[in-house]
């Protein structure tokens, strides 16, 4: 059974169109004109135990909306979500008992309580037994180093400290599913590193199923075995990153520096550019390997240096989002 299954899920938001000015204000009282935004449009997917899935897409694509529906805090306009076989709309409490969520832009730590007190409160809310609580705190402190801020009220924490606190808060009760909505937003290099390490460890140690939305390419490359790409509320791609790269950019470039301006041609590679001693070849990964190409060329002419260029991940992502293909490496 899938840990999460999403079936034909849609969400429409109604937005009251307001008219400007005093006249508009009076008018708004009587006729509320509404426009409908279809934020999520008939999406379906399922996620198995222990997967780390990157749920990515441009701003306004519908990621947060989907995550909210999967956590049972937003009612879908149509379609279904099942988390561990349970519909969060019908049995929210049962679902959230086994769910951890971090919304990078919000906090579940109580603003006025010390961070440690917020954790204590969660311990009671989720009825976490003391043994498990201590064990989880110790393990998470090892990666996130939160012990030093336990006595600081949440409102005095920096963004990165707060985010670490929120991750701990989400995982204290050892949920089997973790939703992370932009968990690395605004963090420095150390912060991102710690959080990525945390995500990997949780996934490895506890088989936690993790769904992650992010705009950070590093997160995507380091964490996500599988990507679900959404844009305009529609799923554009669903598969491993490598597969996506292979499909969108099934080629590599080889830049060869010769000793003079003469260059060798190759039947399975095209020459993209030839400037002075520098020649850029492009070959299809399916036809040829870089090693073979270098071997073939150097058999005919002496070469000084080579560089292998792969398609840039951000270009791939941009193309997958449905952007133009002009981001290619020339």
């Amino acid at each position: 059974m899938s840990v999460i299954s999403v079936e034909h899920l849609s969400k429409e938001y109604q937005i009251a169109k307001k008219e400007k000015g005093l006249r508009g204000a009076v008018k708004n009282l009587f006729v509320a004109r509404k426009t409908i935004v279809r934020a999520v449009n008939d999406i379906s997917f399922s996620i198995e135990k222990g997967e780390i899935v990157g749920f990515i897409g441009p701003n306004g694509a519908g990621k947060s909306t989907t995550v909210k529906m999967m956590s049972g805090i937003l009612t879908p306009s149509s379609g279904h979500v099942y988390v561990n076989g349970t519909d969060p709309q019908k049995e929210r409490i049962k679902v959230v008992q086994d769910l951890g969520v971090v919304f990078g832009q919000r906090t579940q730590l109580n603003w006025d309580l010390r961070m440690g007190e917020s954790f204590e409160m969660l311990k009671h809310i989720y009825r976490i037994d003391s043994g498990l609580y201590e064990e989880n705190m110790a393990m998470m402190n090892e990666i996130l180093g939160i012990n030093e801020f336990l006595d600081t009220p949440a409102r005095q924490l920096s963004l990165g400290q707060r985010m670490r606190g929120d991750l701990v808060a989400a995982m204290l009760h050892s949920p089997s599913v973790l939703f992370l909505d932009e968990p690395t937003i605004g963090l420095d290099v150390d912060g991102k590193y710690a959080i990525r390490k945390f995500i990997k460890e949780m996934n490895r140690k506890k088989q936690t199923t993790i769904i992650l939305t992010t705009h950070d390419l590093g997160d995507i490359q380091e964490l996500c075995e599988r990507l679900i790409i959404i844009n305009h509320g529609i799923i554009m791609e669903d598969g491993p990153l490598e597969e996506l790269i292979d499909r969108i950019a099934p080629y590599k470039n080889l830049v060869v520096e010769y000793f003079d301006e003469n260059a060798v041609e190759h039947e399975k590679a095209i020459i993209l550019s030839h400037v002075g001693n520098m020649v850029t070849y492009r070959f299809q990964k399916a036809d040829l390997t870089a090693a073979q190409l270098i071997h073939d060329i150097s058999a005919q002419m002496r070469i000084k240096d080579v560089t292998i260029e792969e398609a840039k991940i951000d270009d791939i992502i941009r193309i997958a989002y449905g952007g133009k293909e002009n981001g290619e490496k020339e």
Binding site: S71, G72, I73, R92, V96, L99, V101, R106, Q108, I125
Partner: peptide, 10 residues
């Protein structure tokens, strides 16, 4: 932040 309140199993 009502989202955070609704995430709690109560």
């Amino acid at each position: 932040s009502v989202a955070m309140d609704m995430m709690k199993p109560i």
